[in-house]
Nucleic acid binder design. Sequence first.
DNA 1: ATCTATTCCTGGCTGC
DNA 2: TGCAGCCAGGAATAGA
Length: 262
Amino acid sequence: MPELPEVETVVRTLGPRIEGRRILSAEFRSDLILRHCSACLSDVLPGRTVARVQRRGKHIVCTLDAGLLIVHLGMTGKLLVDAEVSRHTRAIFTLEGATLLYDDIRMFGSIEWCEALPARFARLGPEPFDVSEEEFFRGLRGRRASIKALLLNQTLVRGLGNIYVDEALFRAGVRPEAPAYKLSRARSNRVYTGMLEVLSEAIAHRGSSISDYVDAEGRQGGFQDRHNVYSRGGEPCRVCGTPIRRLVLAQRGTHYCPKCQR
DNA sequence: ATCTATTCCTGGCTGC
DNA sequence: TGCAGCCAGGAATAGA
């Protein structure tokens, strides 16, 4: 599942391949992925040049010479440069000197073009690396939801998903069910640090290839083998050997070590 | 304002 | 071997 580290890896591999190139045509094979888009992309995109590719939370924002092309990979989205068209190819962008495909099995992802960032971006919290320890702790005030639900919902910080929330809480030694407002400053600091550490390490390993994530060049990530808890229900904790527990929280599979996380 | 449940989708897995 | 049924989950949405 593409979360912040995976999207960052896609952006780093995609940018050098398409920045500076002019879009010649755009073809769409699914209307579902265009559900956020009010513009007709096949008309708007041809002739535009990709100036810059950047990450904003889990979104890929391509700044064009006019407007923005925004891609969210959802669960199974892939942006692939110079790859073969498959039955899951939902969009084909022909650029001068390169072809960019958007493949997405489940079509939870989306593509849109707009003049400026849409209003819903204003509701997203800051980038994890831009928030201070103090701001993070202040963000927990009055929030009765579990720390897991809060970290997932993109309002405290943006970019975390199910994998890295579970992994950050393991590093912090904090139970995912803990109500956010009840965390002490010390425990909040540990969550904050665990979050930044796991994101940094995951980016360094080019993300986690769970299900079928690959970067823009089709390469898998390397962080999935370093997960401590995610998808390891019943397996021994790497630290203390206690079986990792799995439960459903915030409608998501949730994994933690009952001994290391109190 | 905040929180929770529901919905979208399809490949892969389980069990009969 | 085949197939029904369930599971995975990001985020918009509706409802409490």
